[in-house]
């Protein structure tokens, strides 16, 4: 699981509400003074709960759409 597939966090938009940290099913996030950081990136399952819960759209878990390779 590569690091570039982690949700991206815009710390400038973060309001430190901790919803992402407390609701992460894999406990992959921790709140710091700057905002949330992935303390256990390997365990992130890309469920996108953090993106969904973030009230300020500071977390993006984007999807790339492709056709199945032939």
């Amino acid at each position: 699981m590569s690091e570039q597939n982690l949700p991206s966090i815009n710390l400038a938009l973060c309001n430190h509400c901790t919803l992402c940290v407390t609701n992460c099913p894999e406990n992959a996030l921790e709140m710091t003074e700057q905002g949330p950081v992935f303390i256990d990136p390997i365990s992130c399952s890309y469920c996108r709960d953090c993106e969904h819960l973030c009230p300020t759209a500071a977390i993006r878990a984007p999807l790339v759409v492709t056709w199945r390779a032939k």
Partner: peptide, 28 residues
């Protein structure tokens, strides 16, 4: 929209469900 995204060059920043929803006029 999914067909359109897959047929053309993918966006380097991808699309979140919120952004897809905003584009097609619905909610995530």
């Amino acid at each position: 929209f999914l067909i359109e995204l897959a047929d053309f060059t993918p966006s380097p920043s991808g699309w979140t469900q919120d952004e897809i929803a905003a584009h097609i006029g619905t909610v995530r």
